[in-house]
Design a protein around this nucleic acid. Structure first.
Lengths: 249, 249
DNA sequence: TCTCTCCATTGACTGACGTCAAGTATAGCA
DNA sequence: TGCTATACTTGACGTCAGTCAATGGAGAGA
């Protein structure tokens, strides 16, 4: 009998939210132990996407929002004239697609930056569930409001800060998000290309490159391609006029 | 007996959501006629704020979110170093404070741009209510996701567009929002100062001024102080590379 | 009606960053 | 292992919008 269980069932059984190492970062953190199975009932766990693969596309019908399980993704919006604006980078435990919750069509496109594992929550089922679990509803509101705040911070960064300040802020944001995931906050590998950084921060690639080398010459960081080491975090914070922006989720 | 009712009770009785002229723009639009009294139970209606008065302040404890009933307000965040970033302008029927829903403290400051009437929804009661009214929960998710989208659009505007494009986009956004409120989309009075426009769009006041006069010389608009007339909407849309951004709520 | 103050406009100058162009490293793949 | 495409870096130059400074105008209050 047990041997007759199909493979995908086995997978989904063993990869429960219960046992997920991200349960203190992801949606489970807002759910009582006893209610966790109700979340597991609606989640589709850990599908793998290869680098460059799309998780969803702008203007297609919304079905789900997603949580990064491992790897990382970027979201971006594309305007009529074809210009792209990267709107965010997402790391394990973070929820993607909140800007499309309860909308007809996705407001952005989500793309895997590397080999990435993604959990999927159908929006209609999630909405039903949050009606029954007040804590979860509260958490959803909280996540969405934080997403608004992040985006406002980005707007501020874009309109008020120099290239150096923007890049310092990004490095610090990444650093604190790596720390929260028990990875080195000073020694990490950027999941995204210079191009994505530039686009996200409203700069030209060349400018990003120049700032990286300038920081390097000043002994603030060491960078070889995507490998980055923060040598002087204090100095980075000095560059960033606004210290409060290390947000993320 | 009836004569003994106190004045503020009379006021709150007659100013019900039921009869509010904004019921098709504001929260009531997501609520069945029969359930409307449940919203009225939690709302504090129509307090008046004078020009420049604060509705709430960044970093103070969150109690409520708010709906503009008449007049208009602006929200802004202030960073450590004291720099302000205007994050939005709100017109009648629009909800303010979504970026602070289910957070400890307000993420921004809201200020009346003119004499303004505001309805107040205590967040804890609103959360309780959305548990009971699925449509209302859905609507809240929708509003918040749209707020994220708007903010992303703003980020795009700030990072990709020239001064002229940004200002054209703002004028078109205001225009379409006036239209939705049955006011002239081509002939209106700006609720905000040039300074606020400049700050919102990441420009210097002088630049805003220059672009206004340039548009005027081209015959696209007519502007005398805050009075604006859009003479050639098509031309404005041509200036804005991205046509899709006339958003608002 | 007259100030006073705040807001808006205009001009001259400067600088940070974008653009263009070329060259170099890196990664994916046969 | 080598090849090709892509990503990254560096330099020279131009420009859009910011800054500084001065002036003009409009509304608030006496």
């Amino acid at each position: 009998m047990a041997q007759a269980i199909q493979l995908h069932q086995v997978t989904s059984l063993k990869a429960s939210c219960n046992q997920c190492s991200l349960s203190n970062l992801c949606l489970p953190l807002a759910i009582e132990e006893n209610d966790l199975d109700r979340l597991e009932d609606i989640v589709q766990q850990g599908r793998i996407y290869n680098r460059g693969e799309h998780i969803f596309d702008q203007s297609t019908q919304v079905r789900s929002c997603f949580a990064v399980k491992s790897g990382s993704i970027k979201t971006s919006i594309i305007s009529e004239n074809g210009e792209e604006q990267v709107t965010g980078f997402f790391m394990p435990g973070e929820l993607v697609g909140l800007d499309s919750m309860s909308s007809e069509n996705y407001a952005c496109t989500a793309k895997a930056l590397e080999r990435t594992s993604i959990c999927e929550f159908p929006v209609n089922k999630l909405e039903e569930l949050t009606l029954k679990l007040p804590e979860l509803q509260h958490h959803m509101y909280h996540l969405m409001s934080q997403e608004i705040q992040n985006s406002h911070q980005l707007a501020m960064l874009l309109s008020k800060n120099t290239a150096e300040e923007r890049i310092a802020a990004l490095l610090l944001s990444l650093s604190s998000r790596f720390r929260r995931r028990k990875m080195s906050p000073t020694n990490f590998s950027l999941p995204m290309a210079r191009n994505d950084i530039a686009n996200f921060l409203g700069l030209a690639v060349e400018t990003v490159s120049r700032v990286f080398t300038r920081f390097q010459n000043q002994g603030i960081i060491r960078a070889r391609g995507r490998e980055v080491e923060l040598l002087d975090v204090e100095a980075l914070q000095m560059v960033t006029r606004d210290f409060a922006r290390q947000g993320g989720q």
